[in-house]
């Protein structure tokens, strides 16, 4: 069976793995701990695809009916 990238699918929003510096910056800008972010599992297919590890922060850019594009951050958990 042919392998394909989940992210190429039109309905899967863009998931971007943040570096430690980037995620620190995000947390600082919102003034929260990483525990206060929404969560995503390491076992999530997209997280597997982009190689996220527990403790990483994933940036998700979704299409939104109100703002066109909306940015979410999720903490990778077990």
């Amino acid at each position: 069976m042919k392998k394909f990238a989940l992210q190429d699918h039109g309905l899967v929003p863009a998931h971007i793995l943040l570096t430690v510096e980037e995620s620190d910056e995000v947390l600082q800008s919102y003034g929260v701990d990483s525990a206060h972010l929404p969560k995503i599992r390491v076992s999530d297919p997209v997280v597997k695809e982009i190689g996220g590890k527990v403790g990483d922060v994933v940036k998700i850019i979704r299409n939104s009916s109100t703002s066109g594009e909306s940015v979410f951050y999720r903490l990778v958990i077990d």
């Binding site: 206060h36 109100t66 703002s67 940015v71 979410f72």
Partner: peptide, 22 residues
């Protein structure tokens, strides 16, 4: 006040109210 939507434990539900903060 920063436009985020949080629940009582401080966990963020939306990063900007209604995704557009309006």
């Amino acid at each position: 006040y920063d436009g985020t939507v949080k629940e009582t434990r401080g966990i963020i539900v939306q990063f900007s109210y209604g995704e557009d903060g309006v």
